[in-house]
């Protein structure tokens, strides 16, 4: 149980069946989440995995990648933050307007079994790709959601999983960064696990895992550890047992901090990156991050990939292909 190997199987990179051409859908419903945020719903049964994205085309304007924030058998929804020309236009769309959809593209999150102790960290509208994931994960998931202020904490009352809030201005929950909460939680869980005779906590979801840390003789564990040991020989830090997996999406600097925290505690993590995209299926190369294509190899990357990605939280390409640092990219993107 020490760590989970996120393997990148070659078979997984193969694009799945998707519509090659745009699928033209009428907007079924529009919800204003908060100032500057809107969710568009479409009636279509999309074959989709949390973390994947679709290319959304407004005829005559532009086409941009969006993740799916709401998904059911009958309909799906995308949440849009008004930032640039396209997104401002997009939240101005009304019920019945035609929008073109291509996809879904990308790999999506590797969902761990429900017995794993998991943390999900969302920053701002980074909640969008994680929302469908949280719904699939166990209710005991440690779920942190941060935003500028109270009103920007999207989807209030949507999840069964309890949320730990965190705002920049302190209007709800912790005042500060989501990473503060994560570090604190890891520390407290470490202390809990460090005792030799770890008592099974009242928390049923975590019982199996927290108990295992001190119970080396457990037969199930030895098998598991043997496997993990083979896979993770290169791993430097041993997982302290606070979490088995951390999922994160938000500003890249936040994801980088999460990655660093996870690395120092030996916890595997998966983050969802963002780059300027053109084709969506790994040909044009506009979305390169290191030697990885965010559209095809990602947008979700596990720790093993992140370690070798020099461009993670460092450089991103502009539309022209010019490599710039992250700050410049973020300010260009929100033009």
């Amino acid at each position: 149980m020490t760590s989970v190997k996120i393997s990148e199987k070659p078979g997984k990179l193969k694009p799945e069946k998707f519509k090659n051409r745009h699928l033209m859908l009428k907007i079924l419903e529009k919800q204003i989440n908060c100032p500057g945020f809107a969710t568009l719903f479409f009636e279509y049964n999309l074959d989709f995995r949390p973390g994947q994205f679709i290319m959304v085309w407004i005829p005559g304007i532009d086409e941009k990648p969006y993740t799916i924030s709401h998904h059911s058998k009958k309909k799906f929804g995308i949440t849009i933050e008004a930032k640039g020309i396209f997104s401002k236009k997009a939240i101005g769309l009304e019920k019945g307007d035609l929008v073109g959809i291509r996809g879904p593209f990308g790999t999506g999150f590797d969902i761990v079994p429900s017995s794993f102790s998991v943390a999900v960290i969302a920053g701002g509208c980074g909640i969008a790709p994680l929302a469908t994931l949280v719904e699939k994960l166990d209710d005991s998931t440690f779920f942190i959601h941060g935003a500028r202020s109270k009103e920007f904490l999207l989807y209030p009352g949507r999840f069964k999983t309890g949320r730990h809030y965190c705002t920049d201005d302190g209007s709800k929950g912790h005042k500060g960064f989501v990473t503060d909460l994560l570090e604190k939680e890891i520390q407290s869980r470490k202390i809990k696990n460090s005792g030799k005779n770890a008592e099974i906590t009242g928390n049923t979801g975590n019982a199996e895992n927290t108990g295992n840390a001190g119970n080396a003789e457990n037969t199930g564990l030895t098998v598991q550890e043997g496997k993990a040991g083979r896979d993770q020989q290169a791993e430097k830090t041993v997982n302290t047992g606070a979490f088995d997996m951390v999922y994160a999406c938000g500003p890249e600097i936040m994801m980088y901090r999460v990655f660093q925290i996870c690395e120092s505690n030996g916890i595997p993590c998966q983050v969802s990156l963002e780059r300027y995209m053109r084709c969506g299926f790994g040909v044009c190369g506009a979305c390169v991050c290191g030697d990885r294509l965010v559209c095809r190899d990602g947008p979700v990357f596990g720790s093993d990939k992140l370690r070798s990605m020099a461009d993670f939280n460092r450089t991103a390409l502009l539309k022209s292909g010019k490599a710039v640092d992250m700050n410049q990219f973020v300010s260009w993107r929100s033009r």
Binding site: N20, R21, H22, W57, M277, R278, C279, G280, V283, C284
Partner: peptide, 19 residues
């Protein structure tokens, strides 16, 4: 310096692409 065109720029037609 040149940005290129707006999206959609590359579309897969199944038997090839148009870009």
């Amino acid at each position: 310096p040149r940005d290129g065109h707006n999206n959609p720029t590359v579309i897969d037609l199944g038997h090839g692409m148009i870009n």
